[in-house]
Design a binder for these strands. Structure first.
Length: 346
DNA sequence: AAATCCGACAACCGCATCGGA
DNA sequence: TTCCGATGCGGTTGTCGGATT
């Protein structure tokens, strides 16, 4: 990189020799690069006395040999007391993915919806992790194909994590909140490591724009180890109970405990009506083999205003005779019901 | 153990916008 | 209305530390 030498480069035309000399002298004194502890303390104590703003004045009067811009950035991105540090939670990642799909690279706007996070941090997250996934898929991070991949495979995995974190801590599950901007997550803090992104498509995903849903070439490119899906965590142990018949009507099987499932989703008391009115017929094996995720279905439905995308799983779960997941079906049904109760304006 | 690679993030830069004189 | 300094925003790069060879 051919980086310009600080403010010295800004000293363009119009200035006389004396002024130029003064500017060069000033520029020569300006510090660049990483901030020291002393500089941080100086900046913090100045702001404690005089408040934020007027950064150029601050830079001149505080004794810091930094530009006003540099001071502002250091304060906003690092020193400000309400800055939240550490890995982005699954929920925060979800918000970023959703809002970026909506607004694009409007980092500061996105940051406004993530208290304690800076636009710089979000931007870095996007560039280092999200774009990496796009590169592995060999698609543009801003392309519709990649957005679909994010929505259909990445977001559900994040929602899985949220569900799993909720289950492991016995804390209340994610509650969907209705915000003006769209998504919507609770305040869980399921912090995950930077290496734990889970964005892998199922077999059959092909990112090429002209491709159909078969013949995956990109699945192998997405390397993060799959995180166990909600449905892989013996959901039938949690939300089913022994009954005289399978869900498909066979003998000696399990029946879905809708109340328990809805309770896990924070939707206690939601009246779904009779299960047979929306649950499909299928064998338990079908359910176990079907890697759709209950909480995902719920959240995705809510995010999409009840218009669940069949390419994911919900539509199939409701109508496809080969693949059924009663938990998904239940939550899809619940989401549609909620969408209706909320006036469809989710 | 040393060299190299790579990811994460702090920091800088240029440009756009805003607001006051 | 215009000018100009201050501020905000997004793109890009430098640096550091851990992982890998």
């Amino acid at each position: 990189m051919s980086r310009r030498k600080g403010a010295a480069a800004a000293g363009g035309g119009g200035a006389g020799p004396m002024e130029m000399a003064a500017m060069e002298e000033e520029a020569a004194e300006l510090r660049r690069g990483p901030w020291t502890l002393e500089e941080d303390n100086l900046l913090m104590s100045y702001i404690a006395c005089h408040g934020e703003g007027r950064w150029n004045l601050l830079a001149r009067c505080s004794g810091l040999k930094r530009t006003g811009k540099s001071c502002r950035l250091r304060w906003l991105n690092y020193l400000k007391p309400d800055i939240k540090r550490g890995n982005l939670t699954a929920e925060e990642q979800l918000v970023i993915l959703e809002l970026h799909a909506k607004w694009g690279n409007r980092w500061s706007r996105i940051a406004q919806h993530l208290p304690g996070r800076t636009d710089n941090e979000i931007k870095n997250y996007w560039r280092t992790r999200v774009q990496k996934q796009a590169r592995q898929l060999k698609v543009d991070a801003n392309s519709a194909v990649f957005r679909d991949a994010v929505r259909c495979y990445w977001m559900p995995r994040l929602l899985d994590k949220m569900s799993m974190a909720a289950a492991s801590t016995a804390a209340p599950p994610p509650l969907m909140e209705q915000h003006g901007h769209g998504v919507v997550t609770s305040s869980q803090s399921a912090a995950i490591g930077s290496d734990q992104l889970c964005c892998y498509p199922p077999a059959g995903f092909d990112p090429s724009p002209s491709a159909s849903t078969s013949g995956s070439t990109a699945a192998a490119a997405l390397q993060p180890a799959p995180v166990p899906c909600f449905s892989e965590l013996n959901w039938e142990d949690q939300y089913c109970y022994p009954s005289g018949g399978d869900l498909d009507g066979g003998a000696g099987g399990m029946e879905l405990d809708s109340a328990a499932l809805l309770g896990s989703l924070g939707l206690d008391g939601l009246d779904l009506g009779p299960a047979e009115s929306y649950l499909p017929d299928a064998t338990l094996l079908d359910y176990l083999n079907y890697s759709s995720c209950t909480a995902n279905a719920m959240n995705m439905m809510v995010m999409n205003g009840g218009n669940y995308n069949n390419s994911y799983c919900g539509g199939d779960a409701m109508v496809d005779g080969d693949h059924h997941d009663p938990t998904t079906a239940t939550t899809c049904h619940a989401a549609r019901k909620l969408a209706g109760e909320w006036g469809g304006g989710i």
